[in-house]
Design a protein around this nucleic acid. Structure first.
Lengths: 149, 149
DNA sequence: AAAATATAGTTTGACATAAAACTAATGTCA
DNA sequence: TGACATTAGTTTTATGTCAAACTATATTTT
């Protein structure tokens, strides 16, 4: 028994609280994957795939790293796993041989509907009972917080 | 050059956005530590120390784990480091020998003013130009988001 | 009292993550 | 053209993190 009651909505713990929210969201994503027999995939991998699904042009490592907000060295590891699991392939550019394009495999394309459905579910779940105005308000306040650092 | 512009305030990326905020906050904490010649300490370690500073009773591993929202196995590793750096000591309970109390050393107590000052600075920075109402509103919306999962 | 269960903490194994150092290729500029 | 700087990506190293298995002790149940 602790003498201390952790009040998550105390502004002092806003960062911890946001971490908790992220953790819950991630758990839900992983659970949804499991329901759909998708294993070995973490939310970060899903973020890569979702970005690839949406893109109309070939994407380089740096493009993806920027989008999912991870270091390029982290991305190398994440993509390695996606390659190993058969979701993506690396393709060396002809024009600039420094560049590697990451392209979806047939396996990944077949799963596109599942992944996009889960992505939509996540947003819908997060903002359940938020109206448009409320949603914008939250994002604005978070934006302000972000800029304060 | 990506064809995609990452709009951080798009509700779709709320989790990524919160991760970015956390990252910025963490970077600032680490920078503040460096300024004060405190090295080898990550934000999670600081969270442990800050909790110990505030507590009026001896704290067990589980108490701390609950407060800083980490698995107990993670806490073992974090505390190991704090022991190694000389900030805390482990103390076996006499009444219940399963229990280990974590107690601050002299070194840690001397640094209490510095740690609490940095903790206050972090909150002040986060909520710069937030009035009381705005602050509460943000926390309420985050609370709603949290409960939606 | 013995057996079963619960609790506290550590160890092990796996993984996401980032910083720094590195390789390789391209671009710039004097 | 040659030297220097930039860019793309990987490797290396280190760390925070969790889940599962484990040890040890205490509590509950039968």
């Amino acid at each position: 028994m602790s003498n201390y009651i952790f009040v998550m909505t105390d502004p002092e713990y806003i960062i911890t609280f946001m971490t908790m929210i992220r953790s819950k969201a991630n758990n839900m994503i992983v659970a949804e994957f499991k329901k759909n027999n998708i294993t070995g995939i973490a939310p970060s991998h899903a973020a890569i795939l979702n970005f690839l699904y949406k893109s109309k042009i070939k994407l380089r490592m740096v493009d993806i790293a920027e989008q999912i907000q991870r270091d390029k060295s982290t991305l190398t590891v994440l993509v390695n796993k996606l390659v190993k699991l058969g979701y993506v392939k690396r393709e060396r550019s002809d024009e600039d041989s420094r560049i590697t394009y990451i392209v979806l495999t047939k396996k990944a394309l077949e799963l596109k509907p599942t992944f996009t459905r889960i992505a939509r579910l996540m947003i819908k779940t997060a903002f359940k009972d938020f109206d448009q105005k409320e949603q914008k308000l939250l994002m604005d306040k978070l934006g302000k917080l972000y800029n304060n650092y």
